[in-house]
Structure formats: C-alpha cells, structure tokens
C-alpha cells in the first residue's frame, strides 16, 4: 500500500472523527448553557427546568 492510498482511505474516518467531536462539543455546549450558566437571565429562564431535572440550580 502506497502512502497515497493510505491517506485516501483514511480520509472519511478522519472526517467522521472530526464531525463526531464537533457534534459532541455542540451537545455539551447546549447542556452547559441550559444547565450550568449562572448568567441571571439564563438562571431565571432555566429555573423550573433545572429543579425539575435535579440539576444543581442555586
């Protein structure tokens, strides 16, 4: 196997890994905003939901 074919066959996997990492970070980012952010406006909006899901709220 030449280095050329090795690179070509590995590309989709690398792209998948990068995409899944991006997706995981996006998911974690959404959860951080909804669950952990202590900005006053976020806290007030999220108050009932945080209590209802047993997240530490205040």
């Amino acid at each position: 196997m030449t280095p050329q074919t090795l690179t070509t066959s590995a590309l989709p996997q690398v792209r998948d890994a990068a995409g899944l990492t991006f997706a995981a970070l996006l998911g974690l980012g959404l959860l951080f905003v909804a669950s952990f952010s202590q900005a006053a406006v976020m806290h007030d909006m999220a108050h009932d939901q945080r209590h209802a899901l047993a997240f530490p709220c205040h």
């Binding site: 997706a23 998911g27 009932d48």
Partner: peptide
C-alpha cells in the same frame, strides 16, 4: 415558555450526545 425553551435546548443536547 422559558421552561419550554430550556427543555428543548437541554434535550437536543442530550439527544446529540446519545447519537454520538
């Protein structure tokens, strides 16, 4: 409405992690 919005954000976050 705030509870609705934050629930959607949270559960979309959990769903994406589940899909990963």
């Amino acid at each position: 409405a705030g509870t609705l919005a934050i629930n959607l954000v949270s559960w979309i976050g959990f769903a994406i992690l589940l899909m990963v």
